[in-house]
Design a protein around this nucleic acid. Sequence first.
DNA 1: TAGATTGTTAATCGATTAACAATC
DNA 2: TAGATTGTTAATCGATTAACAATC
Lengths: 207, 207
Amino acid sequence: MDKGISKAVIRRMPRYYRYLGELLENGVERISSNELSKMMKVTASQIRQDLNNFGGFGQQGYGYNVRFLYDEIGRILGLTEIHNVALFGVGNLGQAIANYVRFEKLPFKMIGLFDVDKKKKGQIVSGIPIMMIDEFEDFNKTHRVDIAVLTLPKDAAMPVAQKLADLGVHAFWNFAHVDLEMPKDVVVENVHLSESLMQLSYNMTGR
Amino acid sequence: MDKGISKAVIRRMPRYYRYLGELLENGVERISSNELSKMMKVTASQIRQDLNNFGGFGQQGYGYNVRFLYDEIGRILGLTEIHNVALFGVGNLGQAIANYVRFEKLPFKMIGLFDVDKKKKGQIVSGIPIMMIDEFEDFNKTHRVDIAVLTLPKDAAMPVAQKLADLGVHAFWNFAHVDLEMPKDVVVENVHLSESLMQLSYNMTGR
DNA sequence: TAGATTGTTAATCGATTAACAATC
DNA sequence: TAGATTGTTAATCGATTAACAATC
């Protein structure tokens, strides 16, 4: 029940998860696709189709149990185990992301911060001392790094990513303005802030 | 030549812009859809279809003039004029975004930082003193604010956005974990970092 | 002119929505 | 049981790709 699921579906899953989390906080026990569709402003059909990519989580005549569905989506999204995260490029954005990961109630654990700037060595950010990037190879021998965050200048991103991939890092959360060229067993999730800002700018024109 | 263009097309435009910018830096004068398609790993057909939503920017037998196309896409994306930006919620992420906007070579100008925390009042971030959110109404009388950045806790985002919308702010770059309910003449661009991270997590499983 | 490459139409593919039988 | 709502198939819609005539 895993491959062949479209990106469009995957993009919507975290949003379902968020809404179900809120329902849960509000003590709602069950919900129908129709009620949820009104809250989320999508069609009930889409909700049912999306969920049925992963299995039948509902019950005819009843709807969906909120707690059960929430947990199932969490499991689908891989939120049942802790992912160790190391971050590369401890500038403003890097520091913010380090703190973000730390305080977000999600199972991601920041275990290392790396930079090339010698002046930063040993500085504490989000409770972790900054190391030099060339120390990563040793660090990697004693720590399992599941995800590398790249908050680096664009020219540094590709070589660093390449090195990390060679050392066995298979997942990247990339904030640099480049498309990383990676073997296809490596997962890359891009956050291109400037592209987001340009889309906003586009949508502002002609109004 | 504006409305009716699909979101999918708009999402791709900033990427074209980035690649054309790089070609320009490398002194490339002309490029065919076929060459560009190989660089960008999309189909040449898609490139031509996308561009022809906005007009015929190429020339048969020649291809596209890089400089011309770059400028045209910049114009389409609304990058020919400066957009004034104010930011609400000067935490870690807010500070990082303030600096990001400042140093990114795009026509967005950070003109005000606002928070509710009295201890932050007057502190300088990215060259700008932090003001209190209740000072915004006055600030807004003497400054044109085109875009509001929301780097606030989720419960604060909606009321603040509502207030700002009432005061005439029509565009929001929203980093809070909520879907803002706004009249349809208001533009909202969401950056949901946690959803991005969950997508990454999903794609890591089953490998 | 001949060759190259666009702009655009037509064909295909995929995603969304509608409909309804299955079933709790 | 009757009513409600899912799971799933079929219909529609939209986006992508292919093909090629237009034209530089």
